[in-house]
Write a protein that binds this DNA or RNA. Sequence first.
DNA 1: AATGTTTGACTGAATGTTCAGTCTAGAAAC
DNA 2: GTTTCTAGACTGAACATTCAGTCAAACATT
Lengths: 226, 226
Amino acid sequence: MRVQANNAGTADQRREQMLRAALDVIAERGYPESRIADVAERAGTSPALVIYYFKTKDQLLTEAIRFSEDSWYEAGMRRMAEIPTAAGKLEEIVAMSCLPEADSEPTSSWALWLDLWAQAVRHPEVAGVRQKFDERWRELICSLVVAGQEDGEFGPVDPVDFAVLMSALLDGLAVQIALSDPAVDASRAYELSMQFAAGQLGFTWTPRRSGRSSPRADSGSRVRGA
Amino acid sequence: MRVQANNAGTADQRREQMLRAALDVIAERGYPESRIADVAERAGTSPALVIYYFKTKDQLLTEAIRFSEDSWYEAGMRRMAEIPTAAGKLEEIVAMSCLPEADSEPTSSWALWLDLWAQAVRHPEVAGVRQKFDERWRELICSLVVAGQEDGEFGPVDPVDFAVLMSALLDGLAVQIALSDPAVDASRAYELSMQFAAGQLGFTWTPRRSGRSSPRADSGSRVRGA
DNA sequence: AATGTTTGACTGAATGTTCAGTCTAGAAAC
DNA sequence: GTTTCTAGACTGAACATTCAGTCAAACATT
């Protein structure tokens, strides 16, 4: 026996491999039903090794969620950095929330949010992760609005209020998308969100006609005032 | 069989007693961590009896959630029926979503929603409950808008779009409330929601100044158009 | 050798569900 | 009116499984 071929590189690589495996498992079975044996199997190792790297199951799963959120956020940030206008950036934000990323499965990331929220109710550690994440998210929207206002792209609206409203709206729509509600599919949520944002911030926005690819850089057309 | 003449309709009473016990337990420990032994203990019986009434644990918990949602909804409907204006009714709807009911504990009902959503992702039976509930909820908002428009209280807005937006917004805010996010407490959520609704539907609304009781019948003042 | 990885084999506790009956009250038989 | 029968309500004690976490030994790499 003792074949023991691939020793998958450094400790950090192993960790990440396990985190990804954990995310797969969580997406498939949900947070509470995720077993370390599943993660181990999907990572091609033994349960004992998983515990070796992460002291406890909760630590593994929590870290996996944090890892996922951070990756998602940073990928979005990178994309946003290439977009010149505030309205375009806002569009990217909405797309991040509404349109599934190509890399992972369709509704898995939203389902993860639902698990995250449910866990956060009773697990302070998870609650902390969520809280920071939400804060960062609202802060992003807020500063984006301020920037847009300074550029004259957006009309005068309280940026903090808008951030709260917008993020809540996106969360609510994400629930519908995650649960495949027939009344609200991804593109519908996307359009409604953008219309809402455009109305509140006072810029014009028209939906891309056909191809449902990710939104491009240009958007918005300098119309201020309500 | 089914002689239905025991001392006091024990069967149905027992069931409901167990459902309430289950809700207590779910509120305390969360859906996945709820054990039938807990429910049994709180209902003052044995685990075996719980299974005797509900074939499985999932059936018990699912039914408990349905029971809770229905009670919540119907209590709201009863309150709404007393309110004459559409804007007032809408205010009641927002209050239902944002302000904690006096009867049960503060954030327990929202936490229940989070559990419900998370479970719905993977359990078709729970998904069905949620779906129907959401549909009914949006339908309520929709017909309320139509009624308000016919009365001239509300301006011309697509009622279906509004219902989707409004319910999503309320859901999103409910998440923040459930998780005690410092940025969005219940009253803030309430005011933002009402301002949003007033803005979209074109009626004026001013927050009640002090006493944070449930909203009263009068509200809105016939201003149409954007 | 020493240090850091990896694993198979276990364990201990938790817990959903089953089961073999007991108890009670009404119905049927006498 | 009393006894017998029956069916539903109820229970305590097991059963069977699942799973997080432990451990000592094996392996790899320096």
